[in-house]
């Protein structure tokens, strides 16, 4: 029987920690204050309080997770039960008042509007917390003794998580390279310097630092001068660790045609 009581503790701990991490990273990446406006219960508080509200929630989750993991004190058990019960109510309220807002349970991944599955999940978690109230051991000890009941809990939660589909969609329909934020300029420059094309033509350049650099679509261009004062331009593809590099030399007077076009492609 004790196995039954403690079986859900590790799941609760993992979920609380995941929730904390996701919320903190959402607040940190969402530099635009209003970007949180479509996320979770935070929409129910005024605009400037949304970031702090998410962080407060994250801190609460972290404390509960630590408590469940390391102690058997009932305050954490009851706290978890209260947290998930309250969450269920808040989500119901959110669904009623702001049908467009996501639950924000796992940060910006949970931006789909709150549905019955999200609510069902918090209700299930509340049930798990209630089951764990009188578990005799800490979460840590329970985690060292996995059981079928734990696996069943995980499967039930996965089935109730709309975020899984969202993540699969994101992998399947990744924004094309042209629309993604590219790697930093220094990273691309380092990749250029690892390329064969660079090694072959390095000595022609007056300086190893480009005098101009810009990004267009999926390419980043670096412009250098060679000893004849012609422009040497390298184009580096932005995706991939060993990207394609192309190079061309354009004389200073020239402004239209392609004088010395060298199709150096995909140098490895």
């Amino acid at each position: 029987m004790t196995r039954v009581l403690e079986s859900q503790l590790p799941i609760l701990v993992v979920l609380l920690v995941l929730g904390t991490v996701a919320k903190v990273s959402t607040v940190r990446s969402g530099g635009e204050p209003g970007a949180l406006a479509r996320l979770g219960p935070a929409v129910l508080v005024p605009g400037h309080m949304q970031g702090p509200a998410l962080l407060f929630c994250a801190a609460g989750e972290l404390v509960l997770a630590a408590g469940l993991l390391l102690s058997t004190h009932t305050i954490f058990r009851w706290g978890t039960l209260a947290f998930f019960t309250m969450s269920t109510y808040v989500l119901l309220e959110l669904r009623r008042r702001r049908p467009d807002a996501g639950c924000g349970c796992f940060g910006e991944v949970s931006s789909a509007p709150v549905g019955l599955r999200s609510i069902g999940r918090t209700a299930l978690l509340a049930g798990m917390a209630a089951l764990s109230l009188w578990a005799p051991v800490t979460g840590w000890e329970a985690a060292t003794r996995p059981s079928w009941l734990m696996a069943a809990g995980v499967i039930a939660l996965l089935a109730l998580s709309p975020e899984i589909e969202e993540m699969i969609d994101r992998v399947r329909y990744r924004a094309p390279c042209e629309q993604r934020r590219g790697p930093a300029e220094s990273v691309t420059l380092a990749r250029l310097r690892e390329s064969g094309s660079w090694r072959a033509h390095r000595d022609e350049l007056t300086s190893a630092e480009p005098y101009d650099s810009w990004r267009e679509l999926c390419w980043r261009f670096f412009a250098f001068r060679n000893h004849e004062q012609d422009d040497v331009v390298f184009a580096v593809y932005l995706s991939g660790r060993r990207p394609a590099v192309r190079r061309a030399v354009v004389s200073v007077e020239d402004s239209g045609s392609l004088p010395e076009y060298t199709p150096v492609s995909a140098s490895r």
Binding site: D212, W214, E216, W219, F221, A223, D231, V233, F234, A235, R246, R247, A248, V249, V250, D254, S255, G256, L258, P259, Y261, P263
Partner: peptide, 14 residues
């Protein structure tokens, strides 16, 4: 040479 970027980019990508 912002105008020159266009020429250089076109040359590099052919």
């Amino acid at each position: 040479s912002v105008e020159r970027r266009r020429v250089l980019a076109a040359a590099a990508l052919g």
